[in-house]
Amino acid sequence: MFVLLSHLQRLRRAIAAPGPGRRGSLALRHVDAGSCNGCEHELTAVMSPFYDLQQYGLSIVASPRHADVLLVTGAITTRMAPALRAAHEAMPEPRLVAALGDCALGCNVLGLREQLAGPLEGIVAVDLRIPGCPPSPAVIADALTAALLARGEDRTVSGEPPAPAGGRR
C-alpha cells in the first residue's frame, strides 16, 4: 500500500499536475444515450491522475438530483430518450446541458432513422458543445473548466444568486 501511494506521488510529480487554484464547483451527471462507449472511457480518464478534475471542483455525482451539468453522450436512441428526459427533468435549476461528442451533436451518426431520436438539441436545449469522436480527455477538461469559469463570471455580472448547492462537495 505504501509503495502504491508513493508510486502515485511520483506519478503526480512526473506529470506536474497543477494544484487547486480556482474556487467554485460544478456537479456533473452523465447519461449515455446511445454512445459507442468511447466518450465514457474519455470521461473516466478526465477523473484519472493525468487530468484529475476533482481538484478544480468538478466531480461526477450519482444522481441528476445532485447535478448542475448534464453530460449527454451518444446518438440519442429512441429507447434512451425517455430516460434522458426524466434525468433532465430531475435536475434542479439552474442547470447546464452538455452534448459530449460528435454523436450527441448529430455529426456522422450511423444507424437506422427509426432507432434514433437525436441529435440532443432536438430534445433539450444545449448549453455546451464538446465535439470529437470521442473528444479527448484534454478537450473535455478544457470545456468543463471553461464552463466553470464562465458560470462564475455570469454570476458576478448578472448578480444572480448562487446556484443551489446540489453537489456533494
Binding site: 454512445s35 468511447g38 436512441t77 429507447r79 434512451m80 450511423l110 427509426e114
Partner: peptide, 30 residues
C-alpha cells in the same frame, strides 16, 4: 437501450463501408 440499428443500416452499402459500421458498434472493441 443503445440500439442504433447498425447492422440493418449497413445493408445495401458498398463492402468498403462495412468496417465503419462494425467499428462504430463499440469503441473498446473497435
Amino acid at each position: 437501450y443503445k440500439r442504433r440499428g447498425l447492422e440493418a443500416a449497413a445493408t445495401g452499402r458498398p463492402a468498403e463501408d462495412a468496417i465503419a459500421y462494425a467499428q462504430r458498434a463499440c469503441a473498446a472493441c473497435a
